[in-house]
Simulated assay, not measured.
Amino acid sequence: MIHVAKKIISFLILLFIVVISFAHACYILLLPRSDYSFEQRTINNDPNNPWNLASTYNIIYENGTVDSSPFLIQPPNENTNMFIDFKTSLFATYNFLTGDSGALSNWSYLNNPPHVILIILFSLLVVVYLMNLFIGLLNNEIQANNNRAAYFMQKAQVLAEIELFYLLPFQRRWKEWFPEVIHYYASIDDIQKVIQEIKQQHKWKLFNKAFPELGQALLKKAHNELNE
């Protein structure tokens, strides 16, 4: 999984930059332009003022008319306008990734077309395109990493753990379970592939130093098979 993470780290950085960009755009657009206080009601014409976004309750008379002056006002808090601070703006933008656009529900979409444009762009660019691209890249890298060599490596680790922690000493000496020599059949194509992978990772010298006879035998066998 570490190998997979290294492959997609650049994409995650790009995704993080895009999220920060949208968070900064919303922060600039929805930041209150006038002074306000959560402890005392502030009345002004700023549409981003948390007091102007707070829920209000008006009296409805028997004739159906609505009193223009609010009867009750729910005091706002830091979540009323999450774009008063860049940290909460970043968190609100992150919530968009999960489909939660509630941070913008306090504004009228009909009277604020820039909000609608930002939501549409973010949903198309990040939620639809980049997230599906991320899933595809992650799937490809996992499949590429899940090859035959990785399977045998994982199998060897499991067997080693079983031998170390789950077997008694006399069981570890059973040659039927743990022979001294294990013969493995591989085609010439597989041998060439393994040699190329080792060389590409610049580990052939280390491999040849650790297993000099095996390294020379592999090269000789591969060379002879190709010449036949």
Rank of each mutant, 00 (worst) to 15 (best):
E197K: 09
K221E: 02
N227E: 11
N44K: 03
N147D: 15
N146Y: 07
F211L: 12
K220N: 15
E78M: 02
Y166Q: 09
M1H: 08
P179F: 10
K6H: 13
V194D: 09
F16T: 15
S123I: 13
T80Y: 07
S89I: 05
P212M: 07
F178Q: 03
L90I: 11
R33A: 13
I117S: 01
L72W: 04
E39A: 13
N140R: 11
S37H: 06
A160K: 09
I195V: 14
L31T: 03
L97G: 02
R148M: 14
N58D: 03
E213T: 11
F96E: 01
Y61R: 12
P32S: 04
F11H: 13
S69C: 00
F11A: 12
L214A: 14
P47T: 03
V128R: 11
W204F: 10
V18C: 03
A210F: 13
E161Y: 13
I43P: 07
N48F: 05
I13D: 09
N224M: 11
L137A: 02
I20S: 02
I9T: 08
P212I: 01
L130H: 05
E176G: 09
N81V: 03
T42W: 02
I135P: 01
L125Q: 05
P114F: 08
V158P: 02
N52C: 00
Y94H: 08
S68M: 09
I59F: 10
G64E: 06
A210S: 14
I198M: 14
N227K: 15
N95Q: 15
D85N: 15
A222L: 06
P47A: 02
E228G: 08
N63F: 00
F152K: 09
Q196K: 08
F134I: 00
I188M: 05
K209I: 01
Y109P: 10
A217G: 09
F211M: 06
P169E: 09
I120G: 05
N48K: 03
F71V: 04
N227L: 14
A92G: 06
G136L: 09
M82L: 15
V181P: 01
E225D: 03
F38S: 03
N139R: 08
Q143K: 15
V4Y: 01
R41D: 04
N63P: 05
L72I: 12
L110T: 14
N95H: 09
D46C: 01
Q154P: 00
I162A: 03
N208H: 14
E39W: 06
H183K: 12
L138F: 11
L137F: 10
F22N: 06
G215C: 13
L226Y: 12
P169G: 07
N44L: 01
E141N: 09
N146T: 08
N106P: 00
N79A: 02
N145A: 10
S105W: 00
K199Y: 05
P50T: 10
D189G: 04
S89C: 04
E62D: 15
K221C: 05
L164Y: 06
N145T: 10
D190T: 14
N106Q: 10
F91M: 09
P114G: 02
L53K: 06
H183Q: 11
L31R: 01
